[in-house]
Design a protein around this nucleic acid. Structure first.
Lengths: 253, 253
DNA sequence: CGCCATTTGTCCGTATGTATA
DNA sequence: TTATACATACGGACAAATGGC
């Protein structure tokens, strides 16, 4: 391991309440990025880290907690344990966002409504600017749609949820992509998707196909309209089956 | 203080690696929400908290670090110090988001583009569903616009930036509001707004007024179009003056 | 199965820095 | 300036979890 993490610069004078733990956390993130570590890669164990960053154990643990809470590292006890690199993915971002939504006393219907509004916009962008690589992703997703039977619920859910992720990615904008996917993650984590009646499977499938066709045609307005219809339908189904959840405050997942 | 925070349920068997610190952090957030504490309100100091949650200092401090990092509490040393309730506001959310954007190697132009896309959508929503209280907020903002002179840069920036926040609030959706405002915060924090040429002040002012008028008229389509024009103009100005920043990776603020 | 080594999880005691009065 | 109240940070000890034997 390189010496990039050698001893955090310690403020000597006028030490504003910049906590050591946060400085160490930033340093760790920098080291991860600089060394190009990918999710799953192992970080040093505590003892070497204590020397690298020149802090006491409590401080280092505070830093790791900060990162762990955001899903950026995972820490496991026991032999062969230690800290590993996590991923800054939409799932973890959604978890963090839910904390803010809880503090803001945001209701679940607002999350549903946000998706009804965002997804059609994303579909329009997908149609207007989808590049070849992204279009191939969508084509692959549609092939998976076609291969779906009428039995395998796990496969069904995986495919139809992935569809919305692909659309988000086609926006070609990392910020909007993160927004779209994290909303999807927050929604699906809180709704017991298995209760979705198999009777509607075919409907969902054809609605997705219509949206995809509009995107392949490069028809942004049609893609937007079709996606809006789809999302309104999804919202209606949600309200029928989860009426109670609708007005609940979104909880920190 | 109520006893709602009495001793966190401690897992006795099969203790999965659910860290105590995170459980305590959740408990603290729950207590804040349940007791309806508002930003600035004082939480108990460490010693009472240790009894309330039944953990040791180290664990409690880890919990507070997690919350502090997200801006949900502030902890200050010294007499009269201790933990106070922070705000889950767009600024703090933007800070957290920037961490994810950095890990995803998102470029600054993507943030600008996201605003160009989101803001017109928010303006349309504002026109379509603005309730009376929100409309009065907008009216107040427009009065502030009128009162602006041609000298006071601080006042100018405060007013024109607040305008976009008001529009976001008029969406009537907490999720979209959080998105819109946090994008604005991330942008303004990174752009030295003072460099905005005073020559354009009047232009910005009249563009804002046109958008506001469309909203007062309840004309969603016009509000959207006018806001898009405004944002495209803002983007062009940004690209002229901050060409270098445009392609940089967004950093953790 | 039990035993042991490794690594984090948690707790405690103490000293230092910091802000208020 | 001194005293007080508070968080900040350090170091050591033991408990619990995991994996290999």
């Amino acid at each position: 391991m390189s010496e990039s993490g050698s001893s955090v610069r310690r403020p000597r004078f006028r030490q504003r309440s910049a906590k050591m733990a946060e400085l160490v956390a930033r340093q760790i993130v920098e080291d991860i990025v600089e060394q190009g570590l990918t999710p799953g890669a192992a970080l040093p164990t505590e003892v070497p880290m204590l020397e690298m960053y020149g802090v006491a154990r409590g401080t280092l643990r505070e830093a790791l907690r900060i990162l762990e809470n955001n899903g950026l590292v995972r820490v496991r006890p026991g032999r062969g344990g230690g800290a590993t690199v996590g991923s800054a993915d939409p799932y973890n971002f959604g978890r963090t966002m839910s904390l803010f939504l809880q503090m803001g006393r945001t209701r679940f219907w607002e999350l549903v409504e946000a998706r009804v509004i965002m997804e059609p916009m994303m579909a329009r962008l997908a149609a207007e600017r989808g590049d070849d690589r992204r279009l191939e992703e969508l084509a692959a997703s549609m092939r998976e749609h076609k291969d779906l039977g009428t039995q395998d619920q796990v496969a069904y859910l995986s495919v139809v949820q992935d569809f919305h992720g692909v659309i988000a990615g086609m926006s070609g904008n990392g910020v909007l992509d993160l927004f779209g996917r994290s909303l999807k993650e927050m929604y699906t984590e809180r709704v017991i998707a298995a209760e979705r009646p198999p009777a509607r499977w075919a409907e969902v499938q054809s609605e997705h196909e219509a949206v995809a066709q509009a995107i392949f045609d490069g028809d942004g307005a049609r893609a937007e309209d079709l996606m809006r219809t789809h999302m309104v339908e999804l919202k209606a189904g949600f309200e029928r089956r989860y009426a109670a959840l609708n007005d609940e405050i979104i909880g920190w997942a």
